[in-house]
């Protein structure tokens, strides 16, 4: 039984086919990345797993159970947590309130103190700024807050949508370091990135999405040396 399996997923907006026959398998404890250009359907795929979009056909199974018909909050309850593109933190709530809301559901709520400690250990700056309004944080700190809020939900699969977007290189490294650390502690990661090289360098497995279709998949080490990828993304 696979950890997460998406089987021949199709997603349509009106008459636009955004995802076509996407099949993907994610193994437990791995870091899996989906790379591809803007508009390839990466965000759509994560939103579909999270239950925000419904596939027009195909099925998604988590630990053998179908989840493609569940409401978003039920999917979070199962431990599939998405950190959306653009962070989507709550700007007029304090940093601490943002984190508390990460553990809004009953099970995460029971572990709120332990989870908070974990987040503050991973991102000490959030502890310093816990009373500040989240909207006053810098871009990098907001991304840390978004990831921290995700950790508060006790994820079994953490889905990150473009966490490096708009950040300075030093902060990108900091964010990727934290992703590796979260993975080491046992959380499976699904990482969507435009930053192809860094993402493939971090991940175990990779998928390349082009115009809503998977055109390549494999060990990310192999993908890094793939001629098509070099040409399309790395400009080599």
């Amino acid at each position: 039984m696979s950890f997460l399996k998406a089987d021949e997923i199709n997603v349509q907006y009106e008459d636009m086919h955004v995802l076509q026959e996407v099949t993907m398998e994610i193994d437990q404890q791995k870091i899996v990345t989906i790379v591809g250009a803007n508009g390839a359907g990466k965000t759509t795929f994560l939103k579909t797993i999270a239950g925000i979009l419904r596939p027009t056909s195909g099925e998604i199974r988590f630990l053998g159970d179908r989840i493609d018909h569940l409401y978003p909050h039920k999917i979070v309850e199962k431990g599939l947590v998405r950190i959306p593109e653009g962070r989507k933190i709550f700007p007029s709530l304090s940093v601490l309130e943002n984190l508390e809301l990460g553990s809004y559901l009953p099970k995460p709520k029971a572990k709120r103190p332990e989870s908070l400690e974990k987040v503050f250990f991973l991102f000490p700056v959030l502890k310093e700024r816990s009373k500040q309004l989240a909207g006053t944080l810098s871009g990098g700190e907001q991304q840390m807050l978004a990831i921290g809020r995700g950790i508060m939900s006790l994820p079994r699969l953490l889905m990150l949508d473009e966490p490096s977007l708009g950040l300075a290189p030093v902060l990108v490294r900091e964010i990727f370091r934290s992703v590796r650390e979260i993975n080491k502690q046992g959380t499976t990661i699904l990482l969507v990135e435009q930053n192809v090289f860094t993402a493939l360098d971090l991940a175990h497995d990779g998928y390349v999405l082009e115009n809503g279709r998977i055109v390549l998949k494999g060990k990310s080490k192999d993908l890094l040396h793939n001629e098509h990828i070099k040409e399309a993304f790395l400009g080599i």
Binding site: I52, V81, I83, P91, G150
Partner: peptide
């Protein structure tokens, strides 16, 4: 203030 953020933390 942030509907998508609310969905991601499991708010119904």
């Amino acid at each position: 203030e942030e509907k998508e953020g609310a969905l991601t933390v499991g708010i119904n």
